[in-house]
Design a protein around this nucleic acid. Structure first.
Length: 417
RNA sequence: GUGGGCGUAGCUCAGCUGGUAGAGCACUCGGUUGUGGUCCGAGAUGUCGCGGGUUCGAGCCCCGUCGUUCACCCCA
């Protein structure tokens, strides 16, 4: 009999580590809320066409990493490989782009890419993303980056911020012409030539020495920025400086999704393996229009919750077992006949807002106390014949070991603060 | 899609030149008629990932397969 296993390459979180996952996710979400971003809860599957048009058919993500299938109505459906396209689709569908701008939303949930699993790379992974849609203001570029920065600082996570600008379409086409020309004179193997043909910028982040040295003198997009793009980009840098957010301008940074324009950025942790990007994003000028909405710009990021968790663990930043959300009280019943009483008491305490649990099963007192200890509860109470007939129990402080007598009927009040 | 490492108890792992499986932790019970954490004692636990091959004999060698992991590629 074969045991059924999780599908290959998915990331799963179960106790006790799930607590850490939850903690990271909550911290990231709080940072988004703090800056006025509101929830967008979206489907995990969309029409395949959305990603082909939105993300771009030439990208690896779309051309070879999507989970695509036909539904029962013969429609081509794809499990979302990223979040921005779905947000745009929804904004357009419900006419949010016709209302007050910018539209500021956050989303969180699972994403899917059919890649070969690796450290920090999963087929189902989790992201927290935000989007500020509708205005091309550099102030928004900075706000978006600041949301991530604030979250990382709250976690105590050290990271590096790389930024660059991809400029507007005129900047890019002028640069591309020169870059393709430059690359055509290089000595490259067939696979690399193929990659260059799909997206010449790719060669900038090749890890091989021979490519890096050949690309050393390649024309940089930053040198081709239009007046307007250059002005906006320097404003972004100035503001980041004012907010004391450290960054490095990296003109060789490459992003994998086609829709990026203008300011783009990447958050990197050096505590991770080869998959060191813990988040990234940028501006997208043409995306809304491409998907049939107003011709307005937007900017956003996606943060990899799995990788941030890994990085935090590597830095030893986790809350640990101790801590806040442990139980207030743990009840132990002595004798089978007193169980019903304890079950009722437990339920009453919970109704009163006290986090409590009890020893289930038929264990000896020693075992039950052990269970109380494991639960992390702050207090424990043993309830047997004596307690029920006298109405008085010993409330034991698990940390100090001290007990004090309390009326059973007044237990709830002991925790009311 | 390509390449390397690894699959043995719930977990982390040991297992000699092939001779029929172990440790620590965790778990259960007891030492303490109704009070946990430390200590002491006892106990339970394995299709040695799966399939095939070589051999008198395979956890160990060979082939395949699945899983996992790391890297390329790509990205969160």
């Amino acid at each position: 009999m074969n045991e059924i296993q999780a599908p290959k390459g998915v990331s799963e979180y179960y106790p006790p580590r799930s607590k850490n996952f939850e903690f990271i996710r909550e911290t990231l979400i709080s940072a988004a809320r703090l800056s006025g971003y509101e929830l967008m809860e979206l489907p995990v599957f969309e029409e395949t066409e959305l990603f082909k048009r939105g993300v771009g058919e030439s990208t690896d993500v779309v051309s070879k990493e999507m989970y695509t299938f036909e539904d029962r109505g013969g429609r081509s459906i794809t499990l979302r490989p990223e979040g921005t396209a779905g947000v745009m689709r929804s904004v357009i569908q419900y006419n949010l782009d016709k209302g007050t701008l910018p539209v500021k939303v956050w989303y969180s949930g699972p994403f899917f890419r059919a890649e070969r699993p690796q450290a920090g790379r999963y087929r189902q992974f989790y992201q927290l993303g935000i989007e500020a849609i509708g205005l091309p203001s550099p102030e928004l570029d900075v706000e978006v980056i600041a949301v991530a920065d604030r979250a990382f600082k709250k976690l105590g996570l050290s990271y590096r911020l790389d930024i660059t600008s991809l400029g507007d379409s005129a900047s890019r086409s002028a640069h591309r012409k020169d870059l393709v020309d430059f690359i055509s004179k290089l000595d490259l193997d067939e696979a690399t030539q193929k990659r260059a043909a799909i997206n010449p910028l790719r060669l900038f982040d090749d890890k091989r020495e021979e490519i890096i040295s050949q690309m050393a003198k390649a024309p940089l997009l930053l040198d081709y920025l239009s007046m307007e793009s250059a002005k906006s980009f320097s404003k972004v840098q100035e503001l980041l400086g004012n907010l004391e957010i450290a960054f490095t301008v990296n003109p060789r940074m490459v992003r994998g999704l086609d829709y990026y324009t203008g300011t783009t950025f990447e958050f990197v942790s050096d505590k991770l393996g080869a998959q060191s990007g813990i988040g990234g994003g940028g501006r997208y000028d043409g995306l809304m229009a491409e998907l049939g909405g107003s011709d307005i710009s937007g900017i956003g990021f996606g943060l990899g919750i799995d990788r941030i968790l890994l990085a935090c663990e590597a830095e030893g930043l986790l809350p640990g077992e101790n801590d806040s959300n442990s139980l207030d009280l743990f009840l132990i019943s002595l004798g089978e006949e007193n169980k019903d009483y304890v079950v009722k008491l437990l339920n009453d305490l919970r109704n009163a807002g006290i986090s409590a649990d009890m020893a289930y099963g038929d264990r000896a007192l020693k075992g039950s106390m052990k269970a109380a200890d494991k639960s992390g509860a702050k207090f424990a109470v043993v309830i047997g014949d004596g307690e029920i007939s006298s109405g008085i129990c010993a409330l034991k402080d698990m940390k100090s070991g001290q007990s004090k007598e309390v009326r059973l009927s007044a237990l709830a009040q002991e925790f009311a603060i």
